[in-house]
C-alpha cells in the first residue's frame, strides 16, 4: 500500500494513532515527547496522551525498540505505584509500537505553578505576594506546610516500594482537586498530591538511589523556587516520619550526596 510505505519512510504514526493524535489537543511540547489531552470514545473521560516521537538521528528499528521499552517501563512503574498505594495516574491506553502512552487525566496544577518562582508572569502579581509561598496556595485551601508534607509522604511511599522516580521536580507533581464523587466517603480530603512523569524511573532498593532521587528534588527547589528552598526541610520531615527506620540510612547517604555535589560544583 503506497500510503503506508510513505508513512513509514517519514516515521509517521500508523493510521489509528495518527488520527488519535490529530483529534487531540496539544498540552505540552518536550524534547522527547509531545503531550496531548485526548479521549478514546466520544463523550468519554479525557486522558493525557504522551507521544514519544521518533528521533530522526537514530536508526529507525533501534528507535522503535527503545521507544517501545520506554513506554513499557513508564507503564510498569505506574502500575507498581498504584499497587503500592502511591498516588499516580492510572494507565488508560498503550500503543507501544507507536510510542504512545495514555494516562488518566489529573485535574489540577503542577506544584511548580503553585509555588513562587514557578511561573514567568509573576510581575502581574502585586508586590509582596510574589515572595509569599502561601499567596498562590490560599485559593486552593491548603497551607504550604501541608503541601510539603503531602510531597514527603508520597515520596516515602514510592521509595518504600523501591521505585526511584529519576526526574523529581516540582513540575512532575500535581495537586489534584478530587471531585465530590472521587472523595472517599467519610473523608474530608479533597486534595491529593499526585506524582507524574515516570519516564526515567526504575526499580532499586539502594539507599544511594533514594538519596540521589531526593537530592535532585532539593536542587530543583533551590533553582526553581529560591524563595521556598527552606520549605524542602518540611518535605524531608514528612518523608522521614513516613519512611520510618529506613530513614537514617537514606539521611546519611543524602548528606554524602550533598557533599559530593558541592565538591563537584567547586571544581566545575
Amino acid at each position: 500500500m503506497q500510503t503506508s510505505s510513505f508513512a513509514s519512510k517519514l516515521n509517521m504514526a500508523s493510521p489509528l494513532s495518527h488520527t488519535l493524535l490529530q483529534s487531540s489537543s496539544l498540552v505540552a511540547q518536550g524534547a522527547e515527547a509531545r503531550v496531548y489531552k485526548s479521549s478514546l470514545t466520544i463523550g468519554g473521560p479525557p486522558f493525557l496522551l504522551k507521544h514519544r516521537f521518533n528521533k530522526q538521528y537514530r536508526h529507525p528499528s533501534l528507535d522503535a525498540s527503545l521507544t517501545r521499552s520506554r513506554v513499557a517501563g513508564e507503564a510498569r512503574a505506574l502500575l507498581k505505584c498504584l499497587r503500592s498505594g502511591v498516588n499516580v495516574p492510572g494507565v488508560r491506553f498503550v500503543d507501544a509500537s507507536e510510542g504512545i502512552l495514555g494516562i488518566e487525566w489529573i485535574d489540577g496544577l503542577s506544584v511548580r505553578r503553585l509555588l513562587p518562582g514557578g511561573t514567568e508572569d509573576e510581575e502581574d502579581l502585586d508586590g509582596e505576594s510574589i515572595h509569599d509561598p502561601q499567596a498562590k496556595l490560599s485559593a486552593h485551601g491548603i497551607s504550604v506546610g501541608n503541601l510539603m508534607s503531602l510531597i514527603g509522604i508520597e515520596l516515602a511511599k514510592m521509595h518504600a516500594a523501591d521505585i526511584i522516580h529519576g526526574d523529581l521536580t516540582t513540575s512532575n507533581m500535581m495537586l489534584r482537586h478530587l471531585t465530590k464523587f472521587q472523595v472517599p466517603v467519610g473523608s474530608s480530603d479533597s486534595l491529593q498530591l499526585v506524582l507524574i512523569d515516570f519516564g526515567l524511573s526504575y526499580h532499586s532498593a539502594l539507599v544511594e538511589d533514594k538519596a540521589v532521587d531526593l537530592y535532585v528534588l532539593e536542587r530543583a527547589f533551590a533553582s526553581t523556587h529560591p524563595e521556598s528552598e527552606p520549605l524542602f526541610a518540611s518535605v524531608l520531615q514528612a518523608y522521614a516520619d513516613r519512611l520510618g527506620k529506613e530513614w537514617s540510612g537514606v539521611k546519611r547517604r543524602l548528606d554524602d550526596v550533598r557533599l559530593r555535589g558541592r565538591k563537584r560544583s567547586m571544581v566545575g
Binding site: R68, V71, A72, A75, R76, L78, L79, L82, G90, V91, R92, F93, V94, A96, G102
Partner: peptide, 8 residues
C-alpha cells in the same frame, strides 16, 4: 491500568 497495558 492492567488491561490498558497488557500488550507491554
Amino acid at each position: 491500568t492492567s488491561v490498558a497495558m497488557k500488550s507491554v
